[in-house]
Amino acid sequence: DVEEQIRRLEEVLKKNQPVTWNGTTYTDPNEIKKVIEELRK
């Protein structure tokens, strides 16, 4: 469920934690926001 994935990513973003997505770890909040934007398409 895309909405659920977006919610999880936004939670991690608020906590300033790194996100691992498709084998890539993102630590930059701007990169995480880009992943969220991609999911919304």
Score class of each variant (00 low, 15 high):
23 G>I: 00
2 V>S: 04
21 W>G: 11
40 R>I: 06
23 G>Q: 02
19 V>W: 14
16 N>K: 12
29 P>Y: 07
23 G>N: 04
27 T>V: 06
5 Q>R: 04
41 K>Y: 06
40 R>D: 01
25 T>C: 04
26 Y>Q: 01
17 Q>C: 14
19 V>E: 06
28 D>V: 02
27 T>A: 06
8 R>W: 15
31 E>W: 02
29 P>H: 07
1 D>Q: 08
6 I>N: 02
29 P>A: 09
14 K>Y: 10
23 G>S: 02
8 R>I: 14
29 P>C: 06
8 R>P: 02
16 N>R: 10
9 L>Y: 02
14 K>H: 09
8 R>T: 11
26 Y>M: 10
35 V>H: 03
20 T>H: 15
37 E>K: 06
14 K>S: 12
38 E>N: 09
30 N>M: 12
2 V>R: 07
19 V>R: 00
36 I>K: 00
14 K>F: 10
32 I>K: 00
26 Y>A: 01
26 Y>L: 14
6 I>E: 01
31 E>M: 09
3 E>N: 12
10 E>F: 05
16 N>I: 03
2 V>F: 13
24 T>G: 03
15 K>P: 02
3 E>K: 09
10 E>H: 05
41 K>E: 08
35 V>M: 08
39 L>A: 02
34 K>P: 02
1 D>F: 11
39 L>M: 13
5 Q>F: 13
19 V>G: 07
17 Q>W: 14
12 V>S: 15
10 E>G: 03
10 E>P: 00
37 E>G: 04
9 L>M: 10
18 P>S: 13
15 K>E: 11
4 E>D: 13
27 T>G: 03
37 E>Y: 03
6 I>Q: 02
37 E>I: 08
35 V>I: 15
17 Q>H: 06
28 D>A: 03
19 V>I: 14
15 K>V: 06
38 E>L: 13
29 P>Q: 08
8 R>H: 13
13 L>A: 08
25 T>K: 03
3 E>W: 15
7 R>L: 06
24 T>M: 08
21 W>S: 12
8 R>N: 08
13 L>P: 01
38 E>C: 13
12 V>Y: 15
39 L>Y: 03
9 L>D: 00
38 E>S: 12
15 K>H: 13
14 K>R: 14
21 W>P: 11
18 P>K: 13
30 N>A: 13
34 K>S: 08
2 V>P: 06
4 E>H: 10
9 L>A: 02
39 L>F: 03
37 E>C: 09
33 K>V: 11
7 R>G: 04
24 T>W: 04
40 R>Y: 06
30 N>G: 11
31 E>P: 01
22 N>Y: 10
15 K>F: 10
28 D>F: 01
14 K>L: 12
7 R>I: 08
40 R>G: 03
10 E>S: 05
29 P>E: 08
23 G>Y: 01
35 V>E: 01
22 N>D: 13
38 E>H: 11
8 R>D: 07
4 E>S: 11
21 W>N: 12
15 K>Q: 10
3 E>A: 12
33 K>Y: 10
31 E>Y: 03
25 T>N: 04
38 E>K: 07
41 K>A: 13
4 E>W: 07
34 K>D: 05
28 D>I: 02
26 Y>R: 00
4 E>P: 03
1 D>S: 13
38 E>Q: 12
32 I>W: 02
5 Q>A: 13
24 T>Q: 12
15 K>M: 14
22 N>Q: 13
27 T>P: 02
